[in-house]
């Protein structure tokens, strides 16, 4: 349940931005989550609802934008889409795949007032 910690981090990022940019209410949060990120989206939504109670982001809409997992096979160097960390390269069968995308979790932007 580290999603609660991640939700707290989100709120901290939002509050820091509010200090710097002077807004008082957050309507929407766009959050980018990689397909391979170690996070359960429903738990994160639950955590976000709980930690934002009484804050400037209370009742803000959380829009999760999922980014696809990408990798490069170390053996055949092919760029491949990857949905899990345990499947082999579809072209050469090697398990040595370097993840090149779809791991991140970041607050992209906010709609504020």
């Amino acid at each position: 349940m580290h999603e609660m910690s991640l939700a707290e981090n989100m709120l901290r990022i939002i509050e820091d931005a509010a200090h710097q940019q002077g807004f008082t209410r957050v309507r929407t949060v766009w959050l980018e989550i990689g397909q391979l990120a170690c996070v359960e989206q429903e738990s994160l939504r639950f955590g976000f609802d709980v930690v934002t109670r009484g804050s400037i982001a209370e009742q803000a809409r959380l829009e999760i934008v999922e980014t696809a997992g990408r990798g490069q096979c170390v053996k055949c160097l092919h760029e491949i889409p990857i949905a899990t960390l345990y499947e082999p390269c579809p072209d050469c069968g090697s398990y040595e795949i370097r993840v090149t995308g779809g791991e991140g979790m970041r607050v992209k932007e906010l709609e504020v007032e």
């Binding site: 991640l6 981090n9 989100m10 990022i13 931005a17 940019q21 002077g22 807004f23 008082t24 309507r27 991140g104 979790m105 970041r106 607050v107 992209k108 932007e109 906010l110 709609e111 504020v112 007032e113």
Partner: peptide, 15 residues
């Protein structure tokens, strides 16, 4: 500042 607007952040949750 009270008008609705978009704020770009691009901040990693684990930063």
């Amino acid at each position: 500042v009270s008008a609705p607007r978009i704020v770009k952040l691009e901040q990693d949750l684990l930063a």
